[in-house]
Nucleic acid binder design. Structure first.
Length: 509
RNA sequence: UCCUUGAUAGCUCAGCUGGUUAGAGCGAGCGGCUGUUAACCGCUAGGUCGUUGGUUCGAGUCCAACUCAGGGAGCCA
């Protein structure tokens, strides 16, 4: 196939040439006799200038007739201009409208989440979403590269399953030729079978959880990467997790500079995450959460209390600034443009205010949960938040009380109270991005655990076979793709990390 | 399932303790301005205030239930 046009990505190599660009109008500003179009073509954004002088009256008229998201073919001369995106500007000679765009719903203005989610099919075109999806793509590609480089074989676990694998979370039930089937909540057990065949494998596929969770880190449908390695113990497992995450972070830093910049990501935490991850036992983590043990001179409880105070004083600052700006507007004598600017600022402050108020409602609960944390319990979302705020890189917590973890985890042979699970918690309050561990190898211990968890033995016979025929030490983990994307991009909510999120109350678009 | 916050114009919001015909900005339409980067000027159109019921002389405003949405708990990646 011959390519008949140039992509915006390539423009820096084409300065002084006349090229054809095909894309959409992502932004437009007009003056008398001049139109500025910010064109996007999927590979990037660039400003195109249309005047009658270079594009004729007809060209100028076409440009004036474009609207947001009108598709166009543009012919023009590539020039340098320091002030523009990428330092490049197109002096348009010809412009042709391909598809009009009447009443495009997403304006050059702040919108609420519900509205944007309803427009998700169009929202994906916006600069920020474009950048996030490009970073997601880099992460996906990097994960594959890492495992392929390390000799892993990619294999897929089934999506229809006969029963709940870990017996804990709520699953989506479907009809499978007349009998109940569930959408997979994890491919892990199958991953173990595949690892016994291939040595090292990884799955990469969708996962479903039917929990009615309404939080910023839950989806009903998400993508999970689950490696499983024969002859790996929990410590080799942690090496693999760290190696993979750092490989991904390195690739994002190397290949997504412009995208990270577009979404305003401060990359210092990503950079420090290239240093080795702290590894701590559950015991130690609990002491830190309860404030009994400091980390780098910081104390979890004091940190939270400080955050609460900071939120309180920020709130009064915001109120004062809003009042001040409103007074200035009401005082009169202000130009309309300035009033607009002030109003926009006030709206921004109000948005921040409601976020701060949310924090003020949540932090006391978290403080309470941290202070009263009961040894032996699993961590809640807030406990993870508290712990990770103390570190500038992901933290690995291993050796959990066996009662709170899945039935298939191996017990620490030196202290049977603990199971060899490991959770990786992302910094900046993001919480769990990886969960994994070393698997139980002994048939009898597994049978005992299955009884203990009251799971249907018949469904696990095939799984027990893996221990009956050449059982070996093995480990693996599950990486939540969207959670990694969310952390690396520092998004407020996972729903922005996937093209079409599926969550409680959201099935369209 | 529980706790919590909210629902007013296409969008983002205001509407104080219930009181005459419901407001602003943006966007849209029209007109004016050759270089803009959410900061220009003027005019025009646009709302049975989420739904149902109640209190009241009178409800966008108070009460109840419901629906939907935001955040959190539980559960987890």
């Amino acid at each position: 196939m011959s390519i008949t046009h140039t992509y915006i990505q390539e423009l820096s190599q084409k300065i002084g040439e006349t090229v054809t660009l095909k894309g959409w109008v992502s932004n437009k500003r007009e003056g008398k006799g001049i139109v500025f179009i910010v064109l996007r073509d999927g590979t990037g954004f660039c400003q195109c200038v249309v005047t009658a002088e270079t594009a004729s009256n007809q060209g100028l008229e076409s440009a004036q007739n474009t609207r947001l998201e009108t598709s166009v073919i543009v012919n023009g001369l590539i020039k340098t201009d320091e002030k523009q995106i990428g330092g490049i500007e197109v002096e348009v000679q010809q412009i042709e409208i391909i598809g009009d765009s009447v009443d495009y719903p997403i304006a050059k203005k702040e919108h609420g989440v519900e509205f944007l989610m309803d427009q998700r099919h169009l929202w994906l075109r916006s600069t920020r979403q474009w950048a996030i999806m490009r970073i997601r793509n880099t992460i996906v590609f990097s994960i594959h590269n890492y495992f392929q480089k390390e000799g892993f074989v990619q294999m897929d676990a089934p999506i229809f399953t006969g029963n709940a694998c870990e017996g804990t979370s709520t699953l989506f039930e479907t009809d499978f030729y007349g009998s109940a089937a569930y959408l997979s909540q994890s491919g892990q057990l199958y991953g173990e079978a595949m690892a016994m065949a291939m040595g090292k494998i990884y799955t990469f596929g969708p996962t479903f959880r039917a929990e009615k969770s309404k939080t910023r880190r839950h989806l009903s449908e998400f993508w999970m990467i689950e490696p499983e390695m024969a002859f790996y113990d929990i410590f080799q497992n942690m090496d693999a997790i760290e190696g993979m995450l750092q490989h991904v972070i390195k690739d994002v830093l190397a290949n997504c500079k412009h995208e990270l910049d577009t979404i305003g990501r401060d990359i210092s935490v990503l950079e420090s995450s290239l240093g080795s991850f702290p590894r701590m036992t559950y015991d130690e983590a609990v002491r830190i959460i309860k404030g009994e043990q400091d980390v780098n001179g910081q104390n979890s409880i004091k940190l939270l209390e400080a955050e609460l105070k900071a939120a309180e004083s920020r709130l009064s600052e915001i109120d004062a600034e809003i009042a001040d700006r409103e007074d200035q507007i009401n005082a009169g004598g202000m130009k309309k443009g300035q009033i607009n600017f002030f109003t926009a600022k006030i709206n921004e402050l109000k948005q921040e205010k409601s976020d701060v108020e949310e924090d003020l409602r949540n932090i006391p609960q978290w403080l309470n949960s941290a202070r009263n944390f009961e040894y032996g319990n699993d961590f809640g979302g807030s406990d993870e938040t508290v712990l990770t705020k103390l570190f500038d890189r992901p933290v690995m917590v291993y050796d959990w009380p066996h009662e709170v973890k899945a039935f298939y985890l191996k017990r620490n042979p030196e202290d049977m109270r603990f199971a060899r699970g490991v959770d990786v918690l992302a910094p900046e309050g993001y919480g769990e991005i990886v969960g994994g561990g070393e698997r139980e190898t002994n048939v009898d211990s597994l049978i005992e655990k299955i009884h203990e968890h009251q799971l249907p033995m018949s469904e696990f016979e095939w799984y027990l076979d893996l221990r009956r025929f050449g059982s070996v030490p093995h480990s693996g983990f599950g990486l939540g793709l969207e959670r990694v994307v969310t952390w690396i991009c520092k998004l407020k909510h996972v729903r922005e990390s996937i093209p079409f999120p599926r969550m409680y109350g959201r099935l369209t678009p």
